[in-house]
Simulated assay, not measured.
Amino acid sequence: MNERAIFLKELRGETIGTVSSNSSSDEVFQNQVIRPILKLQNDLFIASFKNYISKYKNDFYNQSTEKKLAQIENAIQKDIKYRNALKGMVIGLFTSDEYLDYIKNSSSLNKRMMSMLTERLKSQIDSFEKA
């Protein structure tokens, strides 16, 4: 294992969630790679969404909580440019071997990644209140 891979794995920390012999390869990748990266990058995701709000959704702060949650979901699901930027923030912390595993089933893993990220941001809706 090269120095970068060792550094990234130490930086991300332990597996989050359960991995068993019955786990699918997507579940294993999700719990060993994606979840730790999402946790590590949480502050960056919050800063990124605050920037997204300021550039594209100035009315965000005047919306009901329900509409704010819908806007978070829409931003991640429908704004391809923003979605790709978020994916880059995650994929950039993959090791070379993890990237090779990722590209084998990137469509399914992208869905998992974006779904978890959407829920993560929605659960922190208070972070997006205007200061």
Results as ranks from 00 to 15, higher is better:
Met1Ser: 12
Glu3Asp: 14
Glu3Pro: 01
Glu3Lys: 12
Ile6Glu: 05
Ile6Cys: 00
Phe7Leu: 13
Leu8Gln: 09
Leu8Trp: 07
Lys9Gln: 15
Leu11Gly: 03
Leu11Ile: 11
Gly13Tyr: 08
Thr15Cys: 12
Gly17Thr: 01
Gly17Pro: 04
Asn22Pro: 00
Ser23Glu: 03
Ser23Met: 06
Ser25Gly: 00
Val28Trp: 00
Phe29Glu: 02
Phe29Asn: 06
Gln32Leu: 07
Arg35Gln: 13
Pro36His: 02
Ile37Ser: 06
Lys39Phe: 08
Gln41Glu: 15
Gln41Lys: 15
Asp43Ile: 04
Leu44Phe: 12
Leu44Pro: 00
Leu44Tyr: 10
Leu44Val: 15
Phe45Tyr: 14
Phe45Ile: 07
Ile46Phe: 07
Ile46Ala: 10
Phe49Ser: 09
Asn51Ile: 05
Ser54Ile: 09
Ser54Cys: 05
Ser54Tyr: 09
Lys55Phe: 10
Asp59Phe: 06
Tyr61Asn: 12
Gln63Gly: 04
Ser64Tyr: 08
Thr65His: 06
Thr65Gln: 14
Thr65Asn: 11
Thr65Trp: 05
Thr65Phe: 03
Glu66Gly: 01
Leu69Asp: 09
Ala70Leu: 11
Glu73Gln: 10
Asn74Ala: 09
Ala75Asp: 03
Ala75Gly: 10
Ala75Lys: 05
Gln77Lys: 14
Lys78Asn: 15
Lys78Phe: 12
Tyr82Ser: 01
Arg83Ser: 03
Asn84Tyr: 12
Leu86Ile: 09
Leu86Asn: 03
Gly88Glu: 10
Leu93Ala: 06
Thr95Lys: 00
Ser96Asp: 14
Ser96Tyr: 02
Asp97Cys: 01
Asp97Thr: 12
Tyr99Thr: 02
Lys104Arg: 14
Asn105Asp: 13
Asn105Tyr: 01
Ser106Asp: 12
Ser106Thr: 10
Ser106Lys: 13
Ser106Gly: 02
Ser107Leu: 09
Asn110Ser: 04
Lys111Gln: 11
Lys111Ile: 08
Ser115Gly: 14
Met116Gln: 13
Leu117Trp: 04
Glu119Lys: 09
Arg120Gly: 00
Arg120Met: 14
Arg120Ala: 06
Leu121Gly: 00
Ser123Cys: 01
Gln124Pro: 02
Ile125Gln: 05
